Simulated assay, not measured.
Amino acid sequence: MKRTLAVILSVFMIFALAACGNNDTPSADNTTKQPPASDTSTPESPDESTSGTEVIPTEGQTNGNILIAYFTMPESDGVDAVASASRVVKGGEVLGNTQFIAQAIQKTVGGDLFAIETVQEYPGDHDNLLDFSEREKAENVRPELSTHVEKMDDYDVIFLGYPNWWGDMPMPLYTFLEEYDLSGKKIIPFATHDGSRFSRTIRTIEDLQPNATVVKDGLTVTRNSIVDAEGDVNEWVQSLGITK
């Protein structure tokens, strides 16, 4: 009788333990994991205005591999929203001639604007500027630049703009072209002038960057046609097969 009772009690305990085991909470390894909040948030945009660099991107632009680098020298004497030989006024803003064309290119094709600037200041008076730039050319000076492209490898196409001074590029362009290795990149020149067009500056660019592809069908705009040149810029850029 005692043995029978012991068997019955043993069977009852086995069923009770089994029931308790079915009510256990699942372990963490069996739960569905949710991604952390940072995985679904919008990443912050990097700061474009790093020290010594002035790369201005187009908002929403799609051609992030394009750089529009330019040197401009608007004469500052008498700047009162009046155009001169080297500057243009649009919407009350005074712009250098080459700067104006560079901005027109950016509107057409996107890309990043980059102003080539120097540590030294150039004369604001027209005659003094001519004399100063002539001495720089005669002495083959390489002016120190105050702005630099920190991620040049990110660009495949470089629009390169400058005024024609004394039948040549301004000397800061020599500094710029000697600072970077543009091998494998496409360089597209554009220039503002007073009748000399490119002179031999395209050949000079080829000499300074022999492993780059320099487009010979560049754009030149006379100083008297700057304000009305946006249509020509758009047509020229489209002829290159580069669009937004």
Rank of each mutant, 00 (worst) to 15 (best):
D24P: 02
R3A: 12
V11C: 04
Q34T: 10
L17R: 04
A19V: 12
L17Q: 08
F15L: 05
D24V: 08
L5A: 01
N30H: 14
I56M: 03
D47G: 04
S27R: 05
T32Q: 14
T58I: 02
A18Q: 05
T4C: 07
S27M: 05
V55R: 01
N30V: 13
T25L: 08
I14F: 04
A28G: 00
T58L: 04
G21D: 14
V55E: 02
M13L: 15
T50Q: 14
C20G: 11
T58Q: 04
I8E: 00
S51C: 05
A6H: 01
V11W: 03
A16T: 11
P26L: 00
P35R: 08
R3P: 04
I14Y: 00
C20Y: 15
I14Q: 00
E44P: 10
A37D: 07
F12L: 15
T25I: 05
P46N: 07
N22P: 06
E48I: 11
S41K: 12
K33L: 07
A19R: 12
Q34D: 08
M13Y: 09
E44T: 15
E54D: 15
G21R: 13
A37N: 05
T50W: 11
A16N: 07
E48V: 12
L9A: 13
T53I: 06
L17D: 07
G21E: 14
I14L: 04
T58K: 04
A6F: 03
I14A: 02
P46D: 05
T50V: 15
D39T: 01
P36F: 08
S49K: 09
T50M: 11
E54R: 09
D29R: 05
N30R: 14
V11E: 01
I8L: 10
P35W: 07
D29H: 09
T25D: 14
M13D: 06
K33Y: 06
I8K: 03
R3Y: 13
T40F: 11
V11A: 04
D29E: 13
K33N: 09
G52D: 03
T53Y: 03
A18N: 07
P57H: 01
G52S: 04
D29V: 07
T25V: 10
D24H: 06
T25M: 02
E54T: 13
V55D: 01
K33Q: 10
L5H: 00
T4A: 12
S41V: 09
D39S: 12
T53E: 11
T50G: 15
N22T: 15
